[in-house]
């Protein structure tokens, strides 16, 4: 069954067509890579899927439900999480507070009861702290839980945003360059984590420039150039595709 499908998605910025009629399909349990030269529209496509940008034409379907142009928070609550390219975090808050903010959005509790029903809130807060701790242990940041997110190294920030993306029990995680500017040990760790979570049934859609990561973990790769999908297939097939080589190296 296809988990995510885009049908002819178009995004224009004034004269520039950043994403041009892209059709793609991601099946449950897959790890799909999205590659392409700089400015080929990869992040724009992510933004269109997650509702941060309004698409100009086409449809986005998640589990056969139309989610085109829905508000980002609704898409997040439906089960698509994402990370941002520059590892966005609440920098002035501690690691734990970052996690708590994300967790509480997925505990069903109306704003009004949050102010009135103390016992219920206490219970949920405890639950949230436990979950935060579990996830931080998973990515290996549990010892830094009281540190400000702004004091973390770049690699640690990426791990934290990864952990935050896992909070809503997502079905699909969109990772925007999880390995960029991260040291080799951290890359190995991220790769292991993705594989481990994938074996538990989580689907990944990953933008990455690091070809070694792509070759290693992806089942399938989609290539964009100037907003157009130019190739799709297994990592090895894509790597030898003349169109892809041309897009990266020029003629």
């Amino acid at each position: 069954m296809s988990l995510l499908r885009t049908e002819g998605v178009v995004k224009k910025f004034y004269g520039l067509t950043a994403v041009d009629r892209v059709n793609l399909e991601i099946n449950e349990g897959e790890i799909v890579g999205l590659i392409g030269p700089n400015g080929s529209g990869k992040t724009t496509l992510f933004d269109c899927i997650t509702g941060f940008l309004k698409v100009d034409a086409g449809r986005v379907l998640f589990r056969d439900k139309d989610i085109t142009n829905k508000m980002p928070y609704l898409i997040a609550l439906l089960g698509i999480s994402r990370t941002f390219q520059n590892a966005r975090l609440f920098l002035k808050l501690t690691v734990e507070q970052n996690m708590m903010i994300a967790i509480q959005q997925h505990q069903r509790l109306s704003s009004l009861t949050a102010l009135t029903e103390r016992r219920k809130v206490k219970e949920l807060e405890k639950e949230a702290l436990e979950r935060s701790d579990t996830l931080l242990k998973l990515v290996g940041l549990d010892r830094l839980s009281q540190e400000y997110a702004g004091n973390l190294s770049y690699g640690q920030r990426k791990l934290l945003s990864f952990a935050m993306a896992l909070i809503p029990y997502p079905k699909l995680v969109l990772l925007d360059e999880p390995a960029a500017a991260v040291n080799p040990t951290m890359i190995e760790k991220t790769k292991d984590l993705i594989k481990q979570l994938n074996s538990k049934g989580l689907t990944f859609f990953i933008i990455e420039h690091n070809m070694e990561v792509i070759m290693n973990i992806c089942d399938r790769v989609i290539v964009l150039n100037h907003g157009v999908k130019i190739a799709e297939g297994s990592p090895n097939k894509v790597r030898s595709d003349p169109k892809v080589i041309e897009a990266y190296l020029g003629e």
Partner: peptide, 20 residues
């Protein structure tokens, strides 16, 4: 919890949306 959502918006509105 409401106050925490306020602070999340102050720190990074796009990220706040992406966490729901």
């Amino acid at each position: 919890r409401i106050g925490r959502a306020f602070i999340a918006i102050r720190e990074d509105e796009a990220l706040a949306q992406s966490v729901g």
